[in-house]
Amino acid sequence: MKEVYNPPTLATKALGMSYGPRRVIHGLDVELPTGKVTAIVGPNGCGKSTLLAGLARLHKPDDGTVLLDGADIQNLPSRKLATQLALLPQEAVAPEGLTVTELIRFGRQPHQGWLRQWSAEDQRVVQHALGAAGLKNLAERPIDALSGGQRQRAWIAMTIAQQTPLLLLDEPTSALDLGHQIEVFELVRHLACDHGRTVVMVLHDLASACRYADHIIAMCDGQIVDQGAPEDVVTPALVRKLYQVECTLLTDPDTGSPLLANVRRAAPEPA
C-alpha cells in the first residue's frame, strides 16, 4: 500500500508583504503546480523567504491573500492548516536530548488531542516516516548526535509524519556538504514523485534548483522575473538579471537539466 496525496492548490493573489519596516513583496500573483517540486530562487533579499513565510502563514500579509483551495488561509484554524501544509523552517532547533523517533512523533500533534494522544494510525505513520526518510537504523539516536544531513532528514521525517499534501522547505540544504545535500534532495523528490505531494523549496543554489525542481520561480526585488520548467526558464539572460554574472549554459547529458558553466562577473552595464 502506498500513500498518494491529491494536494489542494496553493496560490497567492495580489500578495504584499513586509520584512520589518521594509516592503519586500508587492502585488504578487503566483500559483504553485500541484504534485510537483517547485524551487523559488533569486538573489539575497529578493523576498523569496518572505514569500515562503507568507505561504506558510508565518507572517501576515500587508495586503492580498494566500489561497488554499481557493480559501484565504488567514481564516483557517491553526490545526486545520497544519494537517494541510507542513513547514520546515531554515534553522530548526530541537530541544536538547530528543531522539529521532521522539522528534518525528511531534509531527502527529495536529492529528492528536489531549484525550487521544496515541493511536494505531499514529504508530503506523511514524514507522512509515522513519522508513521513508531512511532513518530506521537511527530511530533511537539523539538528534544532537546526528550528522547534518541525517538531522535534516529527521526534520523532514517529522513533516512526513504530519501527513500533509503540501510541504514547504526554507533552504533545506544550506550548511550541508555536497553528499548531505544530495541525501536531502533525493528524499524531497521521492516525497513528490512517489506520493504526489506538492513541495515548495526556497533555494540559494540555482544549479540544485535546475537539477531537482520541476518548476522554478525566479524572483528579483520582490517580483517574479520568470517561472516555468528549468529548461525553459534558466537562460544566460535570467542568470545575469538575478545575480549580475555571465555564464555559459550547457545541458546535463544524463538528466537533460541546464548546467551553469564558466560563471564570471558581468561587465558593468553601459550607463
Binding site: M1, K2, E3, E102, W118, A120, H128, G131, G134, E186
Partner: peptide, 16 residues
C-alpha cells in the same frame, strides 16, 4: 534507502 511503502498495521504499543 527511502522506503515509501506504508507499513502494515501492527498491534498498537505505547511508545518507548
Amino acid at each position: 534507502m527511502f522506503n515509501g511503502a506504508m507499513p502494515a498495521a501492527s498491534p498498537l504499543r505505547a511508545p518507548d
